[in-house]
Each structure stands twice: as structure tokens, then as C-alpha cells.
Nucleic acid binder design. Sequence first.
DNA 1: TTGAAGTACGAACGTTCGGTCGCTAAATTG
DNA 2: CAATTTAGCGACCGAACGTTCGTACTTCAA
Lengths: 205, 205
Amino acid sequence: MSGRRSVADALDTRAAILRRAADIASVEGLEGLTIGRLAADLEMSKSGVIGHFGSKEQLQLATLDHAADLFRLRVWEPVRHLRPGLERLLGICASWTRYAEAPGFAGGCFIAETSFEWDGRTGPVHDALVVVTGRWRRTLAAEIRTAIAAGELAADLDPDQAVFGLEALAAGINPARQLHGETQAPTWALRTMHAILGVSPATAS
Amino acid sequence: MSGRRSVADALDTRAAILRRAADIASVEGLEGLTIGRLAADLEMSKSGVIGHFGSKEQLQLATLDHAADLFRLRVWEPVRHLRPGLERLLGICASWTRYAEAPGFAGGCFIAETSFEWDGRTGPVHDALVVVTGRWRRTLAAEIRTAIAAGELAADLDPDQAVFGLEALAAGINPARQLHGETQAPTWALRTMHAILGVSPATAS
DNA sequence: TTGAAGTACGAACGTTCGGTCGCTAAATTG
DNA sequence: CAATTTAGCGACCGAACGTTCGTACTTCAA
């Protein structure tokens, strides 16, 4: 009844842990995630859970990576094939706000949640978060610069300022929906993103 | 060496606890706030701390109220005397972004932090947060509607969408500064707020 | 067939959590 | 001056925390 079942099962177990961990952490935060709670939910022992990661901090890092993978899969992958520049940028805005509406986690977008939870702290999780969000920021900035170079966006648009605006709006969907039940928040965010980029609704659709 | 000192001291003690609690919670979150940590920082016993509030949840609610008071004092009070409508609205944007730049807490704006921490949870703290942020949203929306009625803002501006945008931008300053060291974030936020309202830089200054 | 590697268990570890209790002593009230 | 109230302390509780350890069992390689 106990012991290892198979390599495939083991990989499944680890994946199942991370899936559940991301779900819990999206509500309780990455620090509010506890090994005991995780074990109870998965009907495992605590040592069985932590054995896959070694420590809680490693579990947190793995959970963050898992969530980042999911974010890329849901936001970046669908628009990856589009032409670099404005077309792909608008695609990102669309898939991003769509993702924020239904991120697949119980508590909303994991990355946004964690950014606010860990921005004031220090340590490996903070640093990993900087890497993950920094990479996304650079992707956005590059796309904007490409669009400007192609004449698709105004030459006087500040890419860094635009990236800041887009990120803030996407993150803002979380509390708007869960605190105030603003179901229109994703639509508002998308419209305001277009305004920031100086794109007319006609061009955007 | 022990025992009560005076009523004035007692009020000071309570205020000192709340001040320190808000400071800790701005970094560690309202849940990461612990009575033991608080007692150690203030060189008190745990029972001496919790005696002022009764339970941790009451302490959390009091801390939230305290932070909301400070927010009102720093953001609303300075522009309270201004003429309702666009003038006061622009004043709010200015004091708001200034506040987000130096909120007086170790970990950035407390309200923004807590909004993301508690948006997915339930209970009294969540409910209190809804009240606090809801009141602020209504204040903003009313100011925008006044400005529209006076012809100072475009008639087709959606007040709720604008409120969503302003709030998202103000909150976004937190992780931008603390995660990526973007010292320009407050300036970016203010500029984008003006863009959302359809106000030209000339009018704004 | 035997041995190594790996997966999970259950029990225990020391610590910290929120919270309670009885007490002391100062301030307030009469 | 006596009685009441109250701030704060220190000891303590049960529960939950992250973590370690020895053990059982399965799978895979030699």
C-alpha cells in the first residue's frame, strides 16, 4: 500500500504537488503555503511532499517556476507565431487580460499576487521573482520598440513607461474582480492598454 | 517596573503598537504580522500587546483602519480644500503618486499591499478591506462625475473604468519600485493617470 | 537473483504560533 | 485613605510549523 509506484507516477506526484501548491498560494500567498496543508489536500504525508523539494523555500521556488510556465503557456504561446511589433503586442494584451480573467488558479493571477507579496522582502524567492517578471518586462519592451521602429507606434512613446502601465493594469484586474466583483475589469484593462499604446479601438480589433 | 503608567501612556502604547504593526505588515503582509514579533520589537510581552486588541484578527482590523487613516491624511486631506471636479481630481492624482513614492511604511503602500494579499480570502478582514477601498473608489468616481458634469472631462469617459485605471496605476508603483528599482514609476503613473483622464500635460501642471 | 536507487510513510524533533491565566502595581474614583 | 480599574508581565497551553530520521517497499540495473 506504500512505497514507490513508478517513475511516471513519481513525476505525476511532483506535478500534482506543484499544481495544488500554485492553487493554494494564489489564495493564501506563497508564504501562507504550508507543507501540512499541502499533504492533507493530496492525502500524503508531510515528508512525502517535502521529499520532492528538500525545503519549503525550494518548494516555493518550484511553485513560482511552475506558475511562470503556465503564464507563458497561456499568454505568450498563443501569440508567439504572430508578426513581431504591434500585431503581436496587441495579441499579448488580449491574451493577458483574458488570462487575468480566468487564470486557472483559485485566487487569481499568481504572478501578480506574488509580486505584491514579495516586493518588500529579501531572499531567493524575491530574487527569482525579479528574474521572472524582469524577463517578461524585457519581452514587452522589445515588442514595443519593434513596433515603434516599424512606425506602428508613436515615436515619442516611452517603452518603459508603457510597460509599467500595461503591467499595472493587468495586475489590477485581480483585486478589482475579487474585492469588488468588477466583472468588466478585464475589458477596462484592455481598453486602457490600447489607450496607453495610442492605438484606436478600430486598429485594435 | 511593571504595571500601568498612565492613560496617556496607554494610548501612546496602543498607537505605538499600530504604527509598528503597519510597518511590519507593509513588508510581511497583514497575515505575516505576528504578536511575538510585535512584542519583541516594542520590548513588551505578548500578552501586553494582545491585551489592547483581544485577538489577532482585531489587531489586523485595527491596523487596517490605522493605515486607512494615514492614507486619508496623506492623500485626501491635502486636496480636500480644492474645488470639486477636475482641479481636485488632479490634486488627488498628484498626492496619491507622491504618497506611493514615500508612504511612510517600510514596505510601500499598505492598502495596495493588503488588497492583493486578501482579495482571494474571506472573512472580516476581507470585508473591512472592501469597505475601505470601496469608499475611496466612490470618492474618485464622484469627483470624476463632477468634472464631467462641469464639462472639464470628456462626456464619453467611463467613470468606473477610469477609477479602475487610476487605482491599478497607483498600486503598480509598489512592485515597480521595490522589485525593479524603477524610481521613475511615480512619474510614469501620474502621466498615465492624466492620459486616462484625457488631460493634456499643460492642463495638468 | 541480488543490490542500488528512489518514493513514501509515520513518528518524532525543536520552535513558534495565537491565546489564557493569575499576578503586580500604578492610576483613578469614591 | 480605601476600593476599583487597568496596563502589563511571565508562565503556560494546545496546535501547527518546517524538518529529520529510520523504515518499508517498489522498480530498475547488474
